[in-house]
């Protein structure tokens, strides 16, 4: 049995019919092809699958797609605007906030949720906000710096043209990080 759903994903309206058990992360990756949202632990611990659902960071491996019916989803692919990195993406680039990049999309979406509510967080607040996102490479130091970079550079504004590497329209480069 399938259930009709409509939702807005990165500003695009989507209409589908899905099984109740289809997880939001699998809908994004396997149905919509938005593979920037990663599947890590599959048990709601690692945060690699973090997306924004109705303006809140959630673990997309622990939400059924039908629960997001009528909702608004933002994934890493929706972060860049007009071919330019979002300040958070720019921050991870400038501060070497990633190595393998697997955790990066989740880190960026969680950080985005933090900076929306707290545009000038302390280091402690950044670390507390990223408790649900695990990174096996960096030791977190440069991730914290990346978030601080974004906070300094206006998280809700578009970065200046000369410092921003361009990304393609799908945002794939920005997604992989």
């Amino acid at each position: 049995m399938t259930y009709p759903i409509t939702m807005t994903v990165n500003g695009t309206d989507r209409t589908d019919a899905v099984e109740a058990r289809l997880l939001l992360v699998d809908y994004l990756r396997n149905v919509l092809g938005l593979t920037g949202t990663h599947v890590g632990c599959n048990t709601s611990q690692c945060g690699a699958c973090t997306v924004l659902l109705n303006d809140q960071a959630v673990k997309a491996c622990t939400v059924f797609t039908v629960q997001a019916n009528g909702g608004n989803v933002l994934t890493i692919e929706g972060m860049a605007t007009d071919g330019k990195f979002h300040p958070l993406q720019q921050g991870f680039w400038e501060e070497h906030g990633l190595q393998c990049g697997f955790c990066t999309p989740g880190m960026i979406l969680s950080s985005y949720d933090l900076l929306k509510h707290n545009p000038d967080p302390s280091e402690v607040e950044i670390r507390h906000a990223l408790e649900g996102n695990l990174c096996r490479c960096t030791g977190y130091q440069n991730i914290v710096k990346a978030v601080q970079y974004a906070a300094r550079n206006g998280v809700l504004s578009v970065p200046s043209e000369e410092s921003a590497p361009t990304v393609d329209a799908q945002g794939e480069n920005g997604a992989a990080g």
Binding site: S44, G47, T50, A57, V58, T62, S110, E131, G132
Partner: peptide
């Protein structure tokens, strides 16, 4: 409790 994403849901 948990982490921010857990607390959001």
């Amino acid at each position: 409790i948990g982490d921010p994403m857990v607390r959001n849901r």
